[in-house]
């Protein structure tokens, strides 16, 4: 188990290095840099640009270095927790981002918990009551959830929130708390606002998860080892929980890694619609204005989230499944 853990952690190192290189290449890909788009903007407004000043700025931001050197400076900064400097905001990236990273994590974690909490019982019910009215009804609901675009659902909820409660339910908290230090009231306000984006982002994931869990359970329900349990005299409920449910858990846990990027990318558009202070909208803006360090920080962060999520799901799998833990396939 320890060897597995060490190996698994070591694999993450080259993965992260590769991700940082790819991220850097992506943010360098558009022709020009932040200054050239800045100049173009100034010129379009009819202002003259002093070449000497531009050159000075270039040197100041390190844009005159070669791509490799720029990467090394940036990656070295990342290791020390320095995310670089945002050209657009004229502030260090860390300050620009503020609570956004944290709020993104909160939102996505809440969404995943929501998906599990809803999908699990429904999936099990659908599988054990295959082809019953309940199964058909829940399946229909799931398909509707799968087919509804997130942003549409967000708009509908915004409208209903306004009509029924008379308040704006956009954002992650009451506007009064924005940029305020954290307090109990602020946390409560976040919780109050959280359910709308969680519901919006989680719907399609829940629907997909229900389908997968139902299929997994149906595969397991008639396996010989379940018949064995029945032949032992186990009652239906105990049998279900101990055997097929336990086996069906594995793909469920393995799905965390899949779920994360899906949820994160799904939340970008919803965040625009609901004006959530998460990373999505700011990432899009940063990519448009070629604010490379800001964009790079977001991309790296999202990649880290996925890699860590995968790591956690692998750990959970190894804990759940002795075949992975003990290296199945070798018989003693």
């Amino acid at each position: 188990m320890l060897a597995f853990l060490v190996r698994r952690v070591l694999i993450m190192v080259p993965t992260l290095i590769a991700i940082s290189i790819i991220t850097f290449v992506i943010i360098q890909l558009p022709p020009g840099d932040y200054l050239s788009s800045y100049i173009a903007e100034l010129e379009s407004q009819g202002e003259s640009v002093d070449p000497a000043r531009i050159a000075a700025l270039r040197a100041q931001y390190g844009l005159d270095l070669s791509a490799t050197e720029q990467y090394l400076v940036w990656a070295g900064g990342l290791l020390q927790g320095d995310l670089g400097f945002s050209f657009e905001y004229q502030q260090p990236v860390t300050e620009v981002v503020g609570d956004r990273l944290f709020l993104t994590v909160v939102l996505n974690a809440a969404t995943i918990l929501f998906i599990w909490a809803v999908a699990f019982p429904i999936g099990v019910y659908s599988a054990t009551h295959q082809y019953s009215w309940g199964d058909y009804g829940l399946t229909l609901l799931g398909f509707i959830g799968l087919a509804t675009p997130n942003f549409l659902l967000a708009l509908v909820l915004l409208y209903l929130g306004n009509v029924w409660f008379g308040t704006s339910i956009g954002g992650m908290m009451d506007p009064a708390y924005i940029d305020q230090p954290w307090s109990t009231d602020k946390v409560l306000s976040v919780l109050e606002h959280l359910w709308v984006p969680v519901l919006v982002i989680g719907t399609s994931g829940t629907a997909g998860m229900i389908r997968r869990l139902r299929a997994n359970m149906l595969d397991e329900l008639h396996k010989p080892y379940v018949v064995t349990a029945r032949a032992k005299g186990l009652g239906p409920m105990r049998r279900l929980v101990k055997y097929p449910l336990r086996t069906a858990l594995n793909p469920f846990v393995a799905d965390i890694g899949n779920l994360l990027p899906q949820v994160v990318s799904g939340s970008a558009i919803v965040s625009m619609v609901l004006s959530l202070p998460t990373t999505g909208p700011m990432l899009i803006a940063a990519l448009q204005s070629q604010d490379m360090y800001l964009a790079g920080s977001f991309l790296i962060f999202l990649a880290m989230l996925t890699v860590v999520g995968m790591f956690l799901s692998d750990l959970a799998l190894a804990w759940l499944d002795p075949r992975i833990r003990l290296g199945a396939g070798t018989s003693r």
Binding site: Y225, A231, G233, L234, Y243, R323
Partner: peptide
């Protein structure tokens, strides 16, 4: 079942739970 009448199956691998 399992107490007065028991059964064993053909394929012992799939008839036992791997977990």
């Amino acid at each position: 079942r399992g107490r007065r009448i028991s059964i064993i199956f053909q394929e012992p691998m799939t008839s036992l739970s791997t977990l």
